[in-house]
Design a protein around this nucleic acid. Structure first.
Lengths: 149, 149
DNA sequence: ACCTATATTTGCAAACTACAAGTAAATGAG
DNA sequence: CTCATTTACTTGTAGTTTGCAAATATAGGT
């Protein structure tokens, strides 16, 4: 494991597997990775518009529009025109969508628990603090870690 | 940033952007994310077969076969039949492939340097140690972090 | 009313994906 | 040796995803 890039490459690949493995069939519905990311962000943000979520996820707005439509058709997401500007669609989880989100969240946290079970409590705390540090550093970095543009 | 999952979700998303941003046009060639992962693994492994790389990357072998063929057509990868069993194709980087790989590696490390520039040396060491810990823990975890199956 | 800007959707063509079937080479039983 | 089986990889085909360009709908300014 020579260089730093290799370490991060392996880590992100493994988390990629984790994400894929977690979220293919939830609550009887077939979901893609993109779908579960969308559910997650719609849950996390406050009355988000299409553009906000698409931007957060780094998805092309046209691709995003179609994927959201899938989730609307699955009755997991609801689009509500924003009264003050009816061009804008506010996204929210339906009850079923909330349920699916919770299922995914629970399962992901189980996986994370399983990973942490191979560490001491101290190591776990260190790792979590490090991830926070990383996130802060990436947020500050101008060259990287934001969607293309 | 309430729960642990959220932290990891954000981190992996940011690294995803990093990967995408880094590797779209290298040395005058248009590459996809999958292409650059393949180049990376062919470089990292010793005389790998098709199956070995596909397994490492968690790609369906048929998808992989076509993506490798793209890279062969771009003259970045060479397939050599393995003498002791000529069903097996050993993958290696061509000179041009090595060059592209080095370019990507250099650029990725620049991005990482930029991220670490927002930390103290101590924080940087802690973060790198934590990523190592994470990788080890994920390798031990049976439920997660390996390709589907 | 009219022009411009913004938010989202749709048309379309290219790329990606994976199941099933095909080819080629190795292995093992009779 | 020969034939059936397994393994490593490729190709047929069809469904999905992607993103550019163009269309639609609404807002805001003059």
């Amino acid at each position: 494991m020579e260089n730093t890039r290799e370490l991060f490459q392996v880590m992100t690949r493994r988390f990629g597997f984790l994400n894929k493995r977690c979220c293919t069939t939830v609550d009887g519905k077939e979901l893609s990775l993109v779908h579960s990311h969308i559910l997650h962000e719609v849950h996390a943000q406050h009355e988000p518009s299409m553009q906000q979520i698409a931007e957060t996820l780094g998805l092309d707005i046209t691709t995003f529009s179609r994927q959201v439509q899938n989730l609307v058709d699955l009755n997991l997401i609801k689009k509500t025109p924003y009264p003050a500007d009816r061009r804008i669609q506010i996204l929210s989880l339906t009850e079923a969508g909330q349920h699916v989100h919770d299922d995914i969240d629970r399962e992901m946290n189980l996986y994370l628990q399983d990973i942490f079970s191979h560490m001491t409590e101290f190591e776990k705390e260190t790792v979590i603090a490090s991830v926070k540090l990383l996130n802060q550093a990436m947020a500050k970095s101008s060259m990287c870690c934001t969607p293309m543009g």
